[in-house]
Nucleic acid binder design. Structure first.
Ligand code: FES
Ligand code: FES
Lengths: 153, 153
DNA sequence: ATAATTAAGGACAAATATATCCTTAATTAT
DNA sequence: ATAATTAAGGATATATTTGTCCTTAATTAT
């Protein structure tokens, strides 16, 4: 559904939000390993989330890294899609017409117009903090099980 | 949501299904103009839909072109996604994990598992013929309004 | 101040998706 | 049979996405 960039962003933000704070920042190495994404590429994605907007905070230097403020954790998951410019994945026409609206509906529109609001709501009406609360359930994961490697020594 | 290939496929199949029959085939020029897609690229896409599977029929030569049998019109819209290998867009995990299931749910899964069946149903439980019936409503379109050019003479 | 650590960012590489062009094969009309 | 028409398919081009590497800047610890 989403691009790799957005998938990495969603996973990385959730990981950083869960395991970091202003005094305990998380480095890109840790984040990318934890969510199973390529390090340098994930770094670029996180830059978008720190610079243009201020969803994530970052600090250079020793003990530096990424973290989210408590305020930032109140942000909706939709914000991440917006920054990566992927809300259109949900909002655009299923057949690829310019507009998805009741004005010039495509043949799939009458069905999709019932689903689209649910997809939007799934992200809009759900804060990062909401997700974190669900993450306390240990059965919920941010990484593929097959990516988990047990390293001896 | 879907790739250009799939968007073109969905629009082209619907157009061909609506305006063709075994005695009135539609050429690629007409199809691509009608649905606003690049001709040669659309030709490749239609090849996938004719060759590997038999959703669309095609005949070379004068008065040749593409058409759908009445039987083919009973096919579900999901079949188009399958041939283009894009069902995964709907079925895969929103965060990009390998499996989307209750076994290893991601933090978005509990919400997405309510929506995913609706998305699948939108395509699976809807035949090409069903869409054609809705297309009789003239307000429903297959092409962007801004792509419509009024040519004088 | 110096060295070490870590994110920022530029440059480049590889993979994939999208698009075009041209030749070939099939079919039909004459 | 020949010519005309149309899809099939190969080759290639372009754009975008994804991924890597290296240098720079910022920060901290010593
Ligand atoms: S107009 Fe196509 S899904 Fe709304
Ligand atoms: S496991 Fe992520 S959406 Fe189902």
């Amino acid at each position: 559904m989403f691009s790799k960039s957005t998938e990495y962003a969603l996973r990385a933000v959730l990981y950083i939000a869960k395991y970091s704070s202003a005094d305990k920042k998380i480095g890109i190495e840790t984040v990318s390993t934890a969510v199973g994404s390529p390090k340098s590429f994930t770094a670029k994605v996180l830059q978008k989330l720190t610079k243009n907007n201020c969803l994530i905070n970052s600090v250079s230097g020793p003990n530096g890294g990424f973290f989210l403020t408590e305020e930032a954790k109140k942000t909706s998951m939709l914000r991440i899609l917006e920054i990566l410019e992927e809300e259109h994945v949900i909002t655009k026409c299923v057949l690829g017409l310019q507009e998805c609206s009741d004005v010039n509906p495509c043949p799939m529109h009458n069905r999709y117009k019932l689903i689209k609001p649910l997809l939007i709501d799934m992200f809009e009406n759900k804060s990062i903090q909401d997700v974190l609360n669900e993450l306390t359930d240990s059965s919920i994961t941010l990484i593929d099980v097959q990516d988990i490697r047990i390293t001896h020594k």
